[in-house]
Amino acid sequence: MKLKNYDYYLIILTTLILFAIGLVSVYGIIYYNYLSVDPQWTQTALYGKYIDEMNSYIYPFLLLLLISLGLCIPKRLFEQDILVKFTAAVLGVTVVLIFLKGIEAGLGFILAVMITVQTAVLILTFKKSQAIRFEKEGYIIRLGSSLLHLGVVILVFNFVSLRDNPFHILIFWTGTILVVAGNIFSFYPGRITSLLVLIK
């Protein structure tokens, strides 16, 4: 499959997954409202059950989103056949972990892999390496895309696996800065370039 077509279907898949997460959120709103018949319900064990239930609904879609990102991010590093084998291997380990230790462990693993790969992509992008391929042209856009993807995986990893970690908030701010900077770089490459020229 051509890289262009591959990217197109990947974008459609990502769009559909994001839409599905939106639907899960709508369900959460309706369900919360339904449970609120008892005004004190959030003070009872029911609230914990509700949180677990909502997490259990959202995790599969997060996993799918990560798989889609998993296909999206390393495509910049690997050839397509290696990419498929790499994804299959990561997915295999994730599935095994889900069965052995639960979905949070599986998600944690895939997120850790994504962070590693995306950090490599970011470093190579920053160094203007020829070893990575991007759909879009332009150094700033590529840098923005790398920052954005890295920020997203860090934030999700932080929410899923590091909620009780003492560095939770510090990691949160790191992810937030990367995401926002990534957005600005991706959306306004021209202005960022002008700004950099001005600074130099």
Partner: peptide
């Protein structure tokens, strides 16, 4: 966590991302 406004905000953000 998973308060309706937060669920709504997640919904809105993922839809705009989509």
């Amino acid at each position: 966590w998973w308060d309706p406004k937060i669920s709504g905000s997640i919904m809105m953000w993922v839809l705009y991302s989509a």
